[in-house]
Protein backbone atom coordinates (compact mmCIF):
# COMPACT_ATOMS: atom_id res chain seq x y z
CA UNK A 1 0.00 0.00 0.00
CA UNK A 2 1.51 3.31 -0.95
CA UNK A 3 1.43 6.48 1.02
CA UNK A 4 -1.23 8.03 -1.15
CA UNK A 5 -3.64 5.16 -0.59
CA UNK A 6 -3.03 5.30 3.15
CA UNK A 7 -3.71 8.99 3.20
CA UNK A 8 -6.91 8.47 1.19
CA UNK A 9 -8.00 5.71 3.56
CA UNK A 10 -7.31 7.94 6.57
CA UNK A 11 -9.24 10.73 4.96
CA UNK A 12 -12.23 8.46 4.41
CA UNK A 13 -12.23 6.82 7.81
CA UNK A 14 -11.10 9.85 9.80
CA UNK A 15 -14.38 10.19 11.65
CA UNK A 16 -14.01 6.65 13.04
CA UNK A 17 -10.34 7.09 13.88
CA UNK A 18 -11.12 10.15 15.93
CA UNK A 19 -13.67 8.17 17.91
CA UNK A 20 -11.21 5.47 18.96
CA UNK A 21 -9.83 7.20 22.10
CA UNK A 22 -13.33 7.98 23.38
CA UNK A 23 -14.55 4.46 22.76
CA UNK A 24 -11.52 3.02 24.52
CA UNK A 25 -12.14 5.25 27.53
CA UNK A 26 -15.79 4.22 27.60
CA UNK A 27 -14.85 0.56 27.42
CA UNK A 28 -12.39 0.84 30.27
CA UNK A 29 -14.32 3.17 32.55
CA UNK A 30 -17.93 2.19 31.88
CA UNK A 31 -18.40 -1.06 30.04
CA UNK A 32 -15.81 -3.13 31.89
CA UNK A 33 -16.97 -2.07 35.40
CA UNK A 34 -20.57 -2.68 34.39
CA UNK A 35 -19.86 -6.23 33.24
CA UNK A 36 -17.75 -6.80 36.33
CA UNK A 37 -20.63 -5.56 38.51
CA UNK A 38 -23.10 -7.90 36.83
CA UNK A 39 -20.79 -10.83 37.49
CA UNK A 40 -20.10 -9.73 41.07
CA UNK A 41 -23.81 -9.39 41.81
CA UNK A 42 -24.24 -13.10 41.01
CA UNK A 43 -21.59 -14.07 43.56
CA UNK A 44 -21.26 -14.05 47.30
CA UNK A 45 -18.08 -12.06 47.80
CA UNK A 46 -16.88 -11.28 51.28
CA UNK A 47 -13.52 -9.56 51.65
CA UNK A 48 -13.37 -10.34 55.35
CA UNK A 49 -13.79 -14.08 55.11
CA UNK A 50 -12.28 -14.37 51.64
CA UNK A 51 -15.41 -16.17 50.51
CA UNK A 52 -16.14 -16.07 46.78
CA UNK A 53 -18.71 -18.36 45.27
CA UNK A 54 -21.26 -18.27 42.47
CA UNK A 55 -24.79 -18.10 43.86
CA UNK A 56 -26.87 -17.18 40.83
CA UNK A 57 -29.78 -14.91 41.64
CA UNK A 58 -29.64 -15.55 45.40
CA UNK A 59 -28.53 -11.98 46.18
CA UNK A 60 -31.50 -10.56 44.30
CA UNK A 61 -33.95 -12.94 45.95
CA UNK A 62 -32.53 -11.96 49.33
CA UNK A 63 -32.96 -8.27 48.48
CA UNK A 64 -36.65 -8.80 47.73
CA UNK A 65 -37.22 -10.11 51.24
CA UNK A 66 -34.89 -7.58 52.88
CA UNK A 67 -37.09 -5.17 54.85
CA UNK A 68 -34.20 -2.81 55.47
CA UNK A 69 -33.67 -2.46 51.73
CA UNK A 70 -37.33 -1.58 51.10
CA UNK A 71 -37.30 0.86 53.99
CA UNK A 72 -34.21 2.53 52.52
CA UNK A 73 -35.82 2.60 49.08
CA UNK A 74 -38.96 4.21 50.50
CA UNK A 75 -36.93 6.87 52.33
CA UNK A 76 -34.89 7.60 49.22
CA UNK A 77 -38.06 7.92 47.12
CA UNK A 78 -39.61 10.39 49.59
CA UNK A 79 -36.36 12.30 49.80
CA UNK A 80 -36.05 12.59 46.02
CA UNK A 81 -39.72 13.23 45.33
CA UNK A 82 -40.34 15.92 47.93
CA UNK A 83 -36.89 17.48 47.71
CA UNK A 84 -36.76 17.84 43.95
CA UNK A 85 -40.36 19.10 43.69
CA UNK A 86 -39.82 21.86 46.24
CA UNK A 87 -36.42 22.78 44.81
CA UNK A 88 -38.00 23.05 41.40
CA UNK A 89 -40.83 25.29 42.59
CA UNK A 90 -38.44 27.60 44.45
CA UNK A 91 -35.87 27.54 41.67
CA UNK A 92 -38.45 28.44 39.03
CA UNK A 93 -39.86 31.26 41.13
CA UNK A 94 -36.41 32.73 41.74
CA UNK A 95 -35.39 32.36 38.12
CA UNK A 96 -38.54 34.15 36.92
CA UNK A 97 -38.00 36.89 39.49
CA UNK A 98 -34.35 37.47 38.70
CA UNK A 99 -34.90 37.31 34.97
CA UNK A 100 -36.68 40.67 35.20
CA UNK A 101 -34.98 44.06 35.31
CA UNK A 102 -34.77 44.08 39.09
CA UNK A 103 -32.37 46.54 40.68
CA UNK A 104 -29.28 44.77 42.00
CA UNK A 105 -30.20 41.47 40.38
CA UNK A 106 -26.57 40.58 39.72
CA UNK A 107 -25.82 40.75 43.41
CA UNK A 108 -28.84 38.56 44.17
CA UNK A 109 -27.81 36.03 41.56
CA UNK A 110 -24.31 35.76 43.03
CA UNK A 111 -25.61 35.51 46.58
CA UNK A 112 -28.08 32.81 45.60
CA UNK A 113 -25.31 30.58 44.35
CA UNK A 114 -23.35 30.48 47.61
CA UNK A 115 -25.11 27.51 49.24
CA UNK A 116 -24.18 25.34 46.30
CA UNK A 117 -20.52 26.25 46.62
CA UNK A 118 -20.26 24.88 50.16
CA UNK A 119 -19.11 21.28 50.58
CA UNK A 120 -22.13 19.13 51.61
CA UNK A 121 -20.29 17.86 54.69
CA UNK A 122 -19.82 21.39 56.00
CA UNK A 123 -23.48 22.18 55.38
CA UNK A 124 -24.50 19.03 57.26
CA UNK A 125 -22.32 19.85 60.26
CA UNK A 126 -23.70 23.41 60.42
CA UNK A 127 -27.31 22.23 60.11
CA UNK A 128 -26.72 19.67 62.83
CA UNK A 129 -25.74 22.53 65.15
CA UNK A 130 -28.66 24.69 64.02
CA UNK A 131 -31.07 21.81 64.67
CA UNK A 132 -30.05 21.29 68.32
CA UNK A 133 -33.43 21.74 70.02
CA UNK A 134 -32.12 23.61 73.05
CA UNK A 135 -29.73 26.21 71.77
CA UNK A 136 -29.86 25.71 68.02
CA UNK A 137 -30.67 28.88 66.12
CA UNK A 138 -33.75 27.45 64.36
CA UNK A 139 -35.76 26.83 67.51
CA UNK A 140 -34.62 30.19 68.84
CA UNK A 141 -36.01 31.95 65.76
CA UNK A 142 -39.25 29.96 65.95
CA UNK A 143 -39.50 30.98 69.60
CA UNK A 144 -39.27 34.66 68.64
CA UNK A 145 -42.44 34.37 66.60
CA UNK A 146 -44.14 32.31 69.27
CA UNK A 147 -43.88 28.84 67.76
CA UNK A 148 -42.83 25.96 69.97
CA UNK A 149 -39.50 24.45 68.92
CA UNK A 150 -39.26 21.04 67.30
CA UNK A 151 -36.75 18.26 67.72
CA UNK A 152 -36.00 18.20 63.99
CA UNK A 153 -33.69 15.39 62.87
CA UNK A 154 -33.91 13.57 66.20
CA UNK A 155 -37.58 12.72 65.89
CA UNK A 156 -38.74 9.75 63.84
CA UNK A 157 -41.56 11.85 62.39
CA UNK A 158 -39.54 14.86 61.25
CA UNK A 159 -36.06 13.40 60.68
CA UNK A 160 -36.39 12.77 56.95
CA UNK A 161 -37.97 16.18 56.35
CA UNK A 162 -35.20 17.90 58.30
CA UNK A 163 -32.74 16.35 55.88
CA UNK A 164 -34.88 17.40 52.91
CA UNK A 165 -34.87 21.00 54.18
CA UNK A 166 -31.09 20.93 54.09
CA UNK A 167 -31.12 19.56 50.55
CA UNK A 168 -33.57 22.24 49.46
CA UNK A 169 -31.41 24.97 50.96
CA UNK A 170 -28.29 23.71 49.31
CA UNK A 171 -29.60 22.71 45.87
CA UNK A 172 -32.36 25.17 44.99
CA UNK A 173 -29.60 27.40 43.52
CA UNK A 174 -28.76 24.62 41.08
CA UNK A 175 -32.34 24.54 39.79
CA UNK A 176 -32.32 28.32 39.69
CA UNK A 177 -29.10 28.44 37.67
CA UNK A 178 -30.28 26.02 35.01
CA UNK A 179 -33.78 27.51 34.75
CA UNK A 180 -32.34 31.02 34.50
CA UNK A 181 -30.08 29.85 31.68
CA UNK A 182 -33.19 28.42 30.02
CA UNK A 183 -35.15 31.65 30.46
CA UNK A 184 -32.37 33.77 29.01
CA UNK A 185 -32.18 31.57 25.94
CA UNK A 186 -35.80 32.33 25.02
CA UNK A 187 -35.88 34.88 22.18
CA UNK A 188 -37.73 38.13 22.83
CA UNK A 189 -39.84 38.30 19.63
CA UNK A 190 -42.69 36.02 20.81
CA UNK A 191 -43.10 38.19 23.92
CA UNK A 192 -43.31 41.36 21.85
CA UNK A 193 -45.89 39.74 19.61
CA UNK A 194 -47.90 38.54 22.62
CA UNK A 195 -47.92 42.00 24.21
CA UNK A 196 -49.09 43.51 20.95
CA UNK A 197 -51.87 40.91 20.88
CA UNK A 198 -52.87 41.95 24.40
CA UNK A 199 -51.96 38.77 26.30
CA UNK A 200 -51.83 39.04 30.10
CA UNK A 201 -48.87 37.89 32.20
CA UNK A 202 -50.36 34.51 33.02
CA UNK A 203 -51.12 33.81 29.37
CA UNK A 204 -47.59 34.83 28.39
CA UNK A 205 -46.17 32.40 30.94
CA UNK A 206 -48.50 29.57 29.99
CA UNK A 207 -48.24 29.83 26.20
CA UNK A 208 -44.73 31.19 25.65
CA UNK A 209 -42.37 30.91 28.60
CA UNK A 210 -43.35 27.44 29.82
CA UNK A 211 -43.31 25.61 26.48
CA UNK A 212 -39.98 27.16 25.56
CA UNK A 213 -38.56 26.44 29.01
CA UNK A 214 -39.50 22.74 29.03
CA UNK A 215 -36.08 21.48 27.83
CA UNK A 216 -34.29 23.30 30.65
CA UNK A 217 -36.90 22.05 33.13
CA UNK A 218 -36.36 18.46 32.05
CA UNK A 219 -32.58 18.72 32.31
CA UNK A 220 -32.74 20.36 35.74
CA UNK A 221 -35.16 17.73 37.09
CA UNK A 222 -33.18 14.87 35.61
CA UNK A 223 -29.86 15.99 37.10
CA UNK A 224 -31.34 16.63 40.55
CA UNK A 225 -33.26 13.35 40.58
CA UNK A 226 -30.13 11.40 39.77
CA UNK A 227 -28.27 13.33 42.46
CA UNK A 228 -30.84 12.81 45.22
CA UNK A 229 -31.22 9.11 44.44
CA UNK A 230 -27.65 8.61 45.59
CA UNK A 231 -27.81 10.94 48.60
CA UNK A 232 -25.22 9.95 51.17
CA UNK A 233 -23.03 12.60 52.84
CA UNK A 234 -25.66 14.69 54.62
CA UNK A 235 -27.41 11.62 56.03
CA UNK A 236 -24.13 10.04 57.10
CA UNK A 237 -23.18 13.15 59.10
CA UNK A 238 -26.56 14.19 60.48
CA UNK A 239 -28.30 11.00 61.56
CA UNK A 240 -26.31 7.93 60.52
CA UNK A 241 -29.61 6.56 59.16
CA UNK A 242 -31.50 6.94 62.45
CA UNK A 243 -33.50 7.46 64.55
CA UNK A 244 -35.09 4.04 64.21
CA UNK A 245 -33.99 3.77 60.55
CA UNK A 246 -36.15 6.77 59.60
CA UNK A 247 -33.46 8.30 57.40
CA UNK A 248 -31.63 5.25 56.10
CA UNK A 249 -31.11 5.78 52.37
CA UNK A 250 -30.12 3.33 49.67
CA UNK A 251 -26.57 4.66 49.32
CA UNK A 252 -26.03 4.45 53.06
CA UNK A 253 -27.34 0.89 53.13
CA UNK A 254 -25.19 -0.17 50.18
CA UNK A 255 -22.17 1.52 51.77
CA UNK A 256 -22.71 -0.38 55.01
CA UNK A 257 -22.78 -3.73 53.26
CA UNK A 258 -19.85 -3.00 50.97
CA UNK A 259 -17.43 -1.25 53.28
CA UNK A 260 -18.48 -2.00 56.85
CA UNK A 261 -19.61 -5.62 56.50
CA UNK A 262 -17.41 -6.49 53.49
CA UNK A 263 -20.42 -8.04 51.68
CA UNK A 264 -19.32 -6.95 48.23
CA UNK A 265 -21.59 -9.29 46.28
CA UNK A 266 -24.78 -8.27 48.05
CA UNK A 267 -23.87 -4.58 47.87
CA UNK A 268 -23.20 -4.85 44.14
CA UNK A 269 -26.55 -6.52 43.57
CA UNK A 270 -28.30 -3.63 45.35
CA UNK A 271 -26.28 -1.09 43.36
CA UNK A 272 -27.39 -2.87 40.24
CA UNK A 273 -31.04 -2.51 41.18
CA UNK A 274 -30.47 1.18 41.85
CA UNK A 275 -28.78 1.49 38.47
CA UNK A 276 -31.82 0.00 36.76
CA UNK A 277 -34.17 2.36 38.61
CA UNK A 278 -32.00 5.36 37.68
CA UNK A 279 -31.79 4.28 34.04
CA UNK A 280 -35.58 3.91 33.80
CA UNK A 281 -36.15 7.37 35.27
CA UNK A 282 -33.49 8.96 33.07
CA UNK A 283 -34.97 7.33 29.98
CA UNK A 284 -38.36 8.86 30.63
CA UNK A 285 -36.71 12.28 30.71
CA UNK A 286 -34.36 11.67 27.82
CA UNK A 287 -37.25 10.52 25.62
CA UNK A 288 -39.12 13.71 26.44
CA UNK A 289 -35.98 15.70 25.62
CA UNK A 290 -35.71 13.93 22.30
CA UNK A 291 -39.34 14.76 21.61
CA UNK A 292 -38.52 18.39 22.36
CA UNK A 293 -35.72 18.13 19.81
CA UNK A 294 -33.13 19.59 22.19
CA UNK A 295 -30.75 17.03 20.88
CA UNK A 296 -31.02 14.05 18.62
CA UNK A 297 -29.53 10.71 19.50
Amino acid sequence: MNLKALSRWTEKELKYLLLVPTILLLLILTVYPLIFAIIASLHTINIRTGERSFVGLKNFIQIISDNLFWNALKNTAIYSGVGVTVEFAFGLGLALLLNTRLAGRNIFRALLLTPMMLPPIVVAVIFKIMYIPDFGVLNYLLGLIGIKGMIWEASVKTALFSLIILDIWEWTPFMFLILLAGLQAIPTDPYEAAIVDGANKFQIFKFITWPLLIPAVLIALLLRLMDTLRIFDQVFIMTGGGPANATETISLYIYRHAFRFSNIGYATAMSFIMLIITVIISNVFINRLKAEEVFTL
Binding site: L177, I178, A181, Q184
Partner: peptide, 23 residues
Protein backbone atom coordinates in the same frame (compact mmCIF):
# COMPACT_ATOMS: atom_id res chain seq x y z
CA UNK B 1 -32.02 26.12 20.70
CA UNK B 2 -28.44 27.21 20.22
CA UNK B 3 -28.53 29.81 22.95
CA UNK B 4 -30.16 27.44 25.39
CA UNK B 5 -27.51 24.84 24.68
CA UNK B 6 -24.76 27.42 25.14
CA UNK B 7 -26.15 28.76 28.39
CA UNK B 8 -26.69 25.29 29.74
CA UNK B 9 -23.16 24.36 28.85
CA UNK B 10 -21.83 27.38 30.69
CA UNK B 11 -23.96 26.56 33.73
CA UNK B 12 -22.80 22.96 33.76
CA UNK B 13 -19.16 23.92 33.32
CA UNK B 14 -19.47 26.31 36.24
CA UNK B 15 -20.91 23.54 38.40
CA UNK B 16 -18.24 21.11 37.27
CA UNK B 17 -15.57 23.61 38.14
CA UNK B 18 -16.99 24.10 41.63
CA UNK B 19 -17.23 20.37 42.14
CA UNK B 20 -13.63 19.85 41.13
CA UNK B 21 -12.41 22.63 43.41
CA UNK B 22 -14.11 21.16 46.45
CA UNK B 23 -13.92 17.52 45.57
Amino acid sequence: MNRLARNLLIALLLIGLLASVFG
